[in-house]
Design a protein around this nucleic acid. Sequence first.
DNA 1: ATTATTCCTGAATGATTGTTTAGTTATATA
DNA 2: TATATAACTAAACAATCATTCAGGAATAAT
Lengths: 198, 198
Amino acid sequence: MSRKKNFDPNQVLIRAVELFWKKGYANTSLNDLVEYLGINRFSLYSTYGDKKSLYLLSLNYYIDNYSVPALESLSLGEPSLSALEDYFDYFSKLQYKQTSGCFVQNAILELSLTDEQVSLAGKRLYSLILSGFCHVLKSAKEHHEIASDEDIEKISHFLLVQIQGIRVLGKAKQYKAMEDAVSIIGQYIDSLKVKERS
Amino acid sequence: MSRKKNFDPNQVLIRAVELFWKKGYANTSLNDLVEYLGINRFSLYSTYGDKKSLYLLSLNYYIDNYSVPALESLSLGEPSLSALEDYFDYFSKLQYKQTSGCFVQNAILELSLTDEQVSLAGKRLYSLILSGFCHVLKSAKEHHEIASDEDIEKISHFLLVQIQGIRVLGKAKQYKAMEDAVSIIGQYIDSLKVKERS
DNA sequence: ATTATTCCTGAATGATTGTTTAGTTATATA
DNA sequence: TATATAACTAAACAATCATTCAGGAATAAT
């Protein structure tokens, strides 16, 4: 019936994620986008809407395709506490490669005061992360790896702060501080384990 | 010899801090600045240089006049561990009022990848914070409040991550998560104390 | 009072911003 | 093959961007 697009909207959206992630919203111009995405301005508007729409699409794509997969090992099956330690080790190593930090964190700091949609995306990611943490801790409690009176929600909140702090220091290239922190977080997680009777 | 300025450059700089802190660099236009500072465009340029110069002046003014005073109780005299707990309590409460988060953290996430001066300002603040933490821990060690084999630098790095994480969640209005984290940080600090013999 | 210096005002600069329009090209169906 | 539909291209839009200019006003020293 009609002409086909000469580009894959999904592939181009990934490029938009990369650019907004690296440069932020205000500092990414439409010229930047047109150049980096490799499509025409009009195609951009007709496919994704205006700049803010494309940004929000990118942000949510990031959550679904970058953040969520990293949480999988926490969310599936009946993980033990070591899954948590692995997750933090994974994250601290990730900071060396992902020099742009966390897209969602960048977005919250830049726009959450003025854009409700950004604020909502942030809340969505935090819920997903907390679910992952809670799932591990619940599983650990059921297997008597941690004490039955531990406050799972509270610990998860604490761990969420760790993730956010690590990503900030990663972006600031404070790698030593970051790794020292991860080491102590590991100690903390260990300290949750019930002592075996000898 | 010449005409006097009819504004106080220091007072106006404080206004610039407020605006850049709240809106970020890219999203603050010169029109915004002229309006909010209450001085003419030309006066702005002749007094502070261009937009980026004013931003950097604002950022460093913030460090010296907002961050440093908050660290005083950690840096003076021979503080005990309770000074650390007070500091974190103070910070968690601050998030309800300072809805713009930490100006330096905002700056790092927005500009550290492209602006060396911003990166340096970040490093300067982190050094100041770490000095404060180390000073408290060293004092606590000398008073045998904590064990002599505790790694003071490592603990300070861990605490720096806490501050960064708290400020992110504060800006995201995740107050419950933030306060739960502060509670566990308090437990952690307590756990450093050497047990009294009974 | 005169002069030299600096500041203030308001307009204008050219460049860049996000967005849209008009005209052309390609494709799927009839 | 003809037609309807939608995507393509390139140019243009008004608005806003950061920065600067020219001319008048105020101040301190002579």
